[in-house]
């Protein structure tokens, strides 16, 4: 039953596959060896082309059709966005808000790892604890944490604490639930062997359970990063004094659409970069692991 809870399998594969495969489509090999260069490069070429076409059409749109003065207020083009992005970095005006957002993100995510990992191991190992915490985990995981935002603003104000808490609530559950799933899937034989040699519960966790759960934990971490970024954005939209999100809301209010898109791009690049870092970390941490197919 526990296997069905929380982060769903289909959802997880979806996120896993999406977050990283920028460009090369997964189904690149059905045409296997003796195919021509065109066939091998087709996914890349088509993918790049479609992005280029999208950008070009977007860029040319205001020149092809006449937009009314009112609509022009809301319209921007890729070149404008690129220029704004360049200006934001060149003048350095983006660093302060970016720093504020990044510290909220980093603190909240770290906190969720520190809490989520041990708690996940605990509920994975103890059936009683799992049964007792299950209603809370199910309820809080299903509920969009945004509903707590007005409450958290009352409790923690508009500063860093509120942001950290909202990031923490969002990022906690993917880590917690995935750790739990990974722990549940640990090899029973290995646990028994280690225990026969006199290992304590701590040793079991350290030697067998956590290393085994590592792929799950990393998958959870990837999901958590996405949610943490979302948390920062949302917290800054509704109740913060400074940060990248605040910059974007203010820009939207002033019809500076290019600034809004610039912020969006910075957020997207950051979350892609973080996800890529996690992937590197994963391959480091799981290097000892024998080939999946050769196991057992």
């Amino acid at each position: 039953m526990g296997g069905a809870r929380g982060v769903p399998v289909a959802g997880r594969t979806m996120t896993d596959a999406r977050a990283l495969e920028t460009g090369v489509a997964p189904a690149a090999d059905p045409g296997a060896p003796g195919r021509s260069l065109w066939h091998r490069l087709e996914p890349t070429i088509l993918g790049t082309t479609s992005i280029v076409v999208l950008l070009v059409v977007w860029e040319l749109l205001p020149r092809l059709i006449t937009v009314s003065a009112g609509t022009k207020l809301f319209f921007t083009t890729p070149s404008q966005i690129a220029g704004t992005l360049w200006r934001l970095f060149a003048t350095g005006s983006i660093w302060t808000p970016l720093g504020v957002s990044a510290s909220g993100f980093a603190l909240g995510l770290s906190l969720s790892i520190v809490v989520g990992l041990p708690l996940g191991v605990l509920i994975g190992r103890s059936r009683t604890l799992n049964a007792m915490l299950d209603p809370f985990i199910t309820a809080f995981n299903a509920t969009p944490r945004l509903v707590f935002l007005p409450l958290l603003m009352l409790w923690f104000g508009l500063g860093l604490e509120m942001k950290v808490v909202i990031v923490f609530i969002g990022a906690l559950f993917p880590i917690l639930i995935n750790t739990y799933e990974g722990v549940r899937n640990a090899d029973k034989t290995l646990i028994n062997v280690v225990r026969s040699f006199g290992a304590s519960e701590w040793d079991i966790a350290r030697l067998v359970v956590v290393p085994n759960a590592m792929p799950y934990i990393v998958a959870g971490l990837r999901l958590a990063i996405g949610r943490a970024v979302l948390g920062v954005v949302v917290a800054e939209f509704f109740g913060s004094e400074s940060g990248l999100g605040v910059m974007m809301v203010q820009a939207a209010g002033r019809y500076q659409v290019d600034v809004v898109f610039s912020g969006l791009i910075v957020f997207a690049v950051l979350s892609l970069a973080m996800t890529a870092m996690v992937q590197v970390l994963e391959s480091r941490l799981t290097r000892w692991r024998p080939q999946r197919a050769g196991e057992e």
Binding site: A25, P43, G47, T49, S50, F74, L230, F237, V260, A268
Partner: peptide, 29 residues
């Protein structure tokens, strides 16, 4: 397959961006 080759990267980019960030724009518009 070709459609997925063409659209996969765009979808990935959209999905990776926190699209909530466009909410103020959508509301204004």
């Amino acid at each position: 397959e070709r459609v997925s080759y063409a659209l996969d990267p765009i979808m990935t980019i959209f999905y990776a961006s926190p699209l909530v960030a466009l909410a103020p724009l959508v509301i204004v518009f």
